[in-house]
């Protein structure tokens, strides 16, 4: 019984499609298996029938002449003796022992071929092993190369991280500077806003002996403080002070703004003042001449007045 795998090989052998070790192995099996040899013969004969499936086309007439001319040329080249000795059946009878010897020689040659095939197969296996080892070395080299590459990539990535960190720090610094700038600008804006809110009032002289006396008061409602600057006020006696009053409609009496003296040479004075009570709205300023240290409630005449 021939199994399917052997039938596969027999079909391929019949079509001359076996090669190398497969061919040698199959021929070895074929040599000892008459049934397989019979199958191969049948399959080879069947395969050659495929010649009939090729499209029918007549060979050129000249081809026949060419073939026969080649045969003529061979016959002409052969010596007469050789022509007589051309294999004929009577000659076969006389040459039987030689034919038997030739068969033995062929058999020996065939076994030799088998031996050579086996040796060739072993060589192939050695080559395969060498190739496998080479492949392994190649794979190891490739792995090492990839490891080096990965390491380089990691180092590059690390460098990028450091650079990115430095950039982030720089940005932070820039952001801090910007924030500071924003704060400064905000403060400036606020300050400018404060200035816009400042209330400035000029005080005119009510004095007959110093009509040119003049004062300017600047008040910040938010800070509840102000500055008074006066000029050309008459010099004071040592037991006297000028006293500033702030008139706020919410109070019945003017609110005490503090006392001050003047430079006897220039008649100039400067007072940073605050109201003794919270001031909501300033309707007017007034400066009076009071005893040293001032009074809680003014009773004297106004020396300067500003609304």
């Amino acid at each position: 019984m021939i199994d399917e795998r052997t039938e596969d090989l027999a079909a391929l052998y019949a079509l001359d499609l076996l090669e190398g070790a497969e061919l040698a192995s199959f021929e070895s099996a074929l040599a000892g298996d008459p049934a397989l040899a019979h199958l191969v013969g049948e399959l080879r004969s069947s395969s050659t029938a495929l010649a009939y499936t090729a499209p029918v086309v007549a060979p050129p007439a000249d081809l026949r002449r060419r073939v026969l001319a080649s045969i003529d040329a061979q016959l002409a080249a052969e010596p007469e003796d050789a022509r007589i000795l051309r294999p004929s059946f009577s000659v076969f009878r006389t040459l039987l022992p030689w034919a038997a010897a030739a068969c033995f020689a062929l058999t020996a040659a065939w076994f030799g071929q088998l031996y050579l095939s086996a040796r060739s197969e072993a060589g192939l296996l050695r080559d395969t092993q060498a190739l496998t080892e080479l492949s392994l070395k190649s794979a190891q080299t490739q792995l090492e190369a990839e490891r080096i590459l990965a390491r380089r990539q990691y180092a590059d990535q690390e460098k990028i991280v450091v650079e990115t960190r430095a950039q982030v720090t720089q940005r932070d610094t820039q952001l801090a500077a910007l924030a500071e700038r924003v704060t400064s600008l905000s403060a400036q804006l606020k300050s400018e806003g404060d200035l816009a809110q400042l209330k400035i009032t000029a005080l005119a002289s009510m004095l007959k002996n110093s009509p040119q006396a003049l004062a300017v008061a600047v008040w910040s409602p938010e800070k509840q403080e102000g500055i008074l600057r006066a000029e050309k006020l008459p010099a004071l006696a040592s037991d006297q002070d000028y006293q500033l009053w702030v008139v706020d409609p919410q109070y019945k009496d003017p609110v005490d703004g503090g006392v001050f003296t003047v430079d006897p040479q220039t008649g100039e004075a400067r007072l940073k003042f605050k109201g003794k009570q919270p001031i909501k709205e300033i309707a007017a300023y007034a400066i009076t001449l009071e005893r040293k240290g001032g009074v809680a409630k003014s009773a004297g005449p106004f020396l300067l007045l500003g609304k």
């Binding site: 090729a54 060979p59 081809l63």
Partner: peptide, 8 residues
């Protein structure tokens, strides 16, 4: 034989 052989 020549026809099928040539065709092949």
């Amino acid at each position: 034989f020549s026809r099928p052989l040539y065709a092949t």
